[in-house]
Design a protein around this nucleic acid. Structure first.
Length: 221
DNA sequence: CGTTCGATGCACT
DNA sequence: GTGCATCGAACGT
């Protein structure tokens, strides 16, 4: 069998997610995403996230108000919002703010830490090596075995969890969001700078050099 | 290095 | 019927 699972920080409590989304996004950098399944344990350190905040955010799935699909965004902070994108990839979000306030943080990339063999299996050993195993939100979900069955699951109680970071994450940079048809002008993507596991081109990742700081004020009423 | 394009399922109009 | 919070292969510079 594999080596005994190493210990991580404490599981992040619901109160962690019940805060302004940009603060949650920032504080998720360096946290550890863990998933235990019958196939084994995988874990990785979060290095890239994006915030989606409210019905006034054109990039947020709640931009047109509540629908059947985006219902989890309106529910309890600390739960997962998973959906199928482009008919091909599952994307994993963590719900933030408060009940009734549709907001979430998209997990876009982690640095593989535990269960690399299982990740390689699930990802069919991608070109780019281990740094690419969980680079990009679709790849991350695949490497972690996350699919629609994890929609609405509690990230504070289930086999899919986030653990508090145990060390400072390093330099954090805010950039424009990537890949959106609307809302890409907002600097709501946070990355740990200079990490090979972060997705996007050099241009996208250097965009922060002239970027304003993210605006505050997206707090639940 | 860069850009373009097809695959693919389903929510939404 | 339209349009994606993507990915990787294929091609151009």
């Amino acid at each position: 069998m594999a080596a005994p699972p190493r210990s991580f920080g404490a599981v992040l409590p619901a109160a962690f997610y019940r805060r302004p989304t940009l603060e949650v996004a920032r504080d998720l950098l360096g946290a550890t995403l863990v998933h235990e399944t019958h196939a084994g344990v995988v874990a990785g350190r979060v290095v890239e996230v994006e915030a989606y905040i409210g019905e006034s955010d054109p990039g947020c799935h709640a931009a047109a108000g509540p629908t059947a699909r985006n219902q989890p965004l309106y529910e309890d902070p600390g739960h997962a919002y998973v959906y199928l994108n482009y008919g091909v990839h599952y994307l994993l979000n963590v719900v933030t703010e408060a009940r009734g306030v549709p907001a979430a943080v998209l997990l876009r990339a982690v640095e593989p830490v535990v269960g690399l063999d299982l990740m390689r299996q699930r990802r069919a050993a991608p070109a780019g090596g281990d740094a690419a195993l969980c680079r990009g939100p679709g790849n991350l979900a695949r490497a972690f075995g996350v699919d629609l069955s994890h929609n609405r699951c509690s990230l504070t109680r289930s086999a899919l969890r986030l653990h508090a970071r145990e060390a400072e994450p390093g330099e954090i940079a805010w950039t424009r969001r990537i890949g959106l048809s609307r809302g890409s002008e907002r600097y709501w993507r946070a990355i740990i700078a200079e990490r090979r596991e972060v997705s996007g081109t050099r241009a996208w990742n250097q965009d922060y050099l002239s970027a304003p700081r993210p605006r505050r004020g997206h707090v639940a009423e």
